[in-house]
Design a binder for these strands. Structure first.
Length: 576
RNA sequence: GCACCGAUGGUCUAGCGGCUAUGACUUGAGCCUUCCAAGCUCAAAACCCGGGUUCAAAUCCCGGUCGGUGCACCA
């Protein structure tokens, strides 16, 4: 029996939304083409994301290479941690995580090489937990695609497994672009690559897919959001850690969720709100959407809190589509360490702080000539000393295993009072990360309806994609009622005027009018404009609404502007 | 990566060693037609790939690819 997944994919394939890539050559798992309608749909879904996060939130978009150099992924942990050591049973061919099997034998299995793990399995006689068979050699499976940069294979490169690193790596430039002010954010929409072991489920798990990510850098001490009051009344379904323990999700306002501490702070809750609004706007059904909190053991150790937007799919159940995490300062610190560059923002205090501190001023006129090359080290060692170490007749230091005594008189010790106007801090990162392809599949599934239409007493089947007009690839269809030159001519003119307005318009004069309506219903075209003989008399046309199949007569004058308004603001009902 | 199941026009499908490979829908050209796929004429379009068995393979066998399912994996 065909389930919804099958029906949606069949339609998507047949009408040019989604195609298996490389089909001519037999295809390859994990790659999909967006056909003519799919690509347009995807563009529109991405543009709504831009509208929300780039235009309205002000998180400018950047574009970094899809290939990254090795340092980036050493810092991010993908080189070391984005792979799993696997071993297979020779008897029953079950695959196991090798590091899990030797957990009790060694303290830190993650630090061992595949060969070392193989050795441990052999020397400890570890056998298949399922059937007690012998285990095969351990092999590393890294989910990143590796390549070489330039000839000679000297420089390793990797296809990026997420777009996020691009924003982290550009952090120093971004700080300057935003003129040293927190919070600020950068976004990126682009292709990402993971060499999945077993990609399946259509477009749900791909080897090349599209992410839309925002990295928002905030002051770790200020996790409130100035716009929170605008969204605090939004009600949504939360599936918290507690809820998961008891198996219950709850519908609650964001204000309440923050107050109760369910969501860690306002800023995260604000991002959840925008995500919620975004998903509804592109066509996700509100009753098939929930936000699930990561369980403690599921969350990365550095994350303060993390919520996934999950969308209910007919076949796959709840599919994780968006991750919204407070990643704290983990990423910036990791890149600071790897690049040996300070990645901080100078944050001024509201009022300068007056600080009294110890000032140690060595007499370099004497110490310099006396210690020559070591003088520099001695000075910095002196400055690190506490007051009690400086009070004796001699000051004692150990520099490179050598004991050094310095007469008290040579070091002037006093206290200095100075004003400090601010400090360098490592921002925390809030990361909403969207899987665009999963969203596309979900909205297609939620928009897909099969219904019976009654026509002159007979029931006719109808397939209709109830896409929000804003994302529908084809936005209007112009249809002369009959294939007659006198109707075709004005129809062509109307088509032109709609296209000039930027509306993607299909013109169709083949077959009966009913068939053409059905064709357009199936791809989600929101409005069809029909030209009949009355048009020639009184300059009016009919506009048909996809969802209700209702028609209104409307003046030809200003038709393009009216359709535009219908698509982007009004609803059909209000309009007629 | 392992195991099981499957693969025939764009889509769904018949076939079960022997044909010019069913049928429907769809699509294209035209006729007809004053608003919701069903009239008429004509046309286009398929056996996943490679090997083997056989006089003969879409059909049987082996391998691969792709799809589905289960296991494992999914920061």
């Amino acid at each position: 029996m065909a389930d919804k997944y099958e029906k949606v994919l069949e339609l998507a394939k047949r009408r040019g939304f989604l195609w298996n890539s490389f089909e001519l050559y037999g295809g390859t798992a994990g790659f999909y083409d967006y056909g003519p309608l799919g690509a347009m749909l995807k563009r529109r879904v991405e543009n709504i994301w831009r509208d929300i996060f780039v235009i309205n939130e002000g998180y400018y978009e950047i574009e970094s290479p899809t290939i990254g150099i090795e340092d980036i992924f050493i810092a991010s942990g993908h080189v070391g941690g984005f792979s799993d050591p696997l071993t297979e049973c020779q008897e029953c061919h079950e695959a196991f995580r090798a590091d899990h099997l030797i957990q009790d034998i060694t303290d830190n299995p993650d630090t061992l090489s595949a060969d070392e793990v193989s050795g441990l399995i052999k020397s400890n006689n570890i056998i298949c937990p399922e059937c007690k068979g012998a285990l095969g050699d351990v092999y590393e499976f890294n989910l990143m695609f590796k390549t070489n940069i330039g000839p000679g294979g000297k420089r390793a490169g990797y296809l990026r497994p997420e777009t996020a690193q691009g924003m982290f790596v550009d952090f120093p430039r971004l700080v300057k672009f935003y003129r040293d002010h927190l919070p600020f954010g950068a976004t990126q929409i682009g292709k990402t690559y993971r060499n999945e072991i077993s990609p399946r489920q259509g477009v749900i798990r791909l080897r090349e897919f599209t992410q839309a990510e925002a990295e928002i850098f905030i002051d770790p001490r200020v996790k409130t959001h100035p716009g929170f009051s605008e969204v605090s009344d939004i009600k949504l379904t939360l599936f918290s850690q507690e809820g998961q323990d008891t198996g219950k999700s709850e519908i609650i306002t964001l204000g309440e969720a923050v107050q109760k501490g369910t969501i860690a702070h306002e800023f995260l809750a604000y991002c959840i709100a925008r995500t919620h609004q975004y998903l509804l706007r592109v066509g996700i059904s509100p009753d098939k959407l929930r936000f699930r909190q990561h369980m403690k053991d599921e969350m990365a150790h550095y994350a303060a809190d993390c919520w996934d937007a999950e969308i209910l799919s007919d076949r796959f159940g709840w599919v994780e589509t968006v991750g919204i995490a407070d990643r704290t300062d983990y990423d910036l610190k990791a890149h600071a360490r790897q690049s040996e560059t300070e990645l901080t923002v100078y944050v001024p205090y509201d009022k300068p702080k007056t600080v009294t501190r110890l000032a140690v001023k060595p007499d370099m006129g004497v110490l310099g000539p006396r210690f020559k090359g070591k003088a520099g080290k001695i000075v910095s060692a002196l400055k690190d000393l506490k007051l009690k170490d400086l009070t004796g007749d001699f000051i004692e230091l150990t520099i490179e295993d050598e004991k050094i005594r310095i007469e008290k008189e040579l070091v002037d010790v006093g206290s200095v009072t100075e004003e400090i106007h601010g400090e360098n801090i490592v921002p925390h990162v809030i990361e909403p990360s969207f899987g665009i392809d999963r969203i596309i599949y979900s909205l297609l599934e939620h928009a897909y309806f099969e219904e019976e239409v009654e026509v002159e007493g007979k029931k006719e089947p109808r397939i209709v994609l109830r896409l929000p007009p804003e994302v529908a690839p084809v936005q209007a269809a112009v249809l002369p009622l009959l294939t007659k030159e006198e109707l075709i001519k004005p129809a062509r003119e109307i088509t032109e005027s709609l296209r000039k307005k930027g509306i993607l318009t299909a013109y169709d004069d083949s077959g009966t009018i009913g068939r053409r309506y059905r064709r357009n219903d199936e791809i989600g075209t929101p409005y069809s404009i029909t030209i009949d003989y009355q048009t020639l008399d009184d300059c009016t046309v009919t506009i048909r609404d996809r969802d209700t199949m209702k028609q209104v007569r409307a003046p030809l004058e200003g038709i393009a502007g009216n359709i535009y308004d219908l698509l982007y603001s009004g609803s059909f009902r209000e309009w007629c």
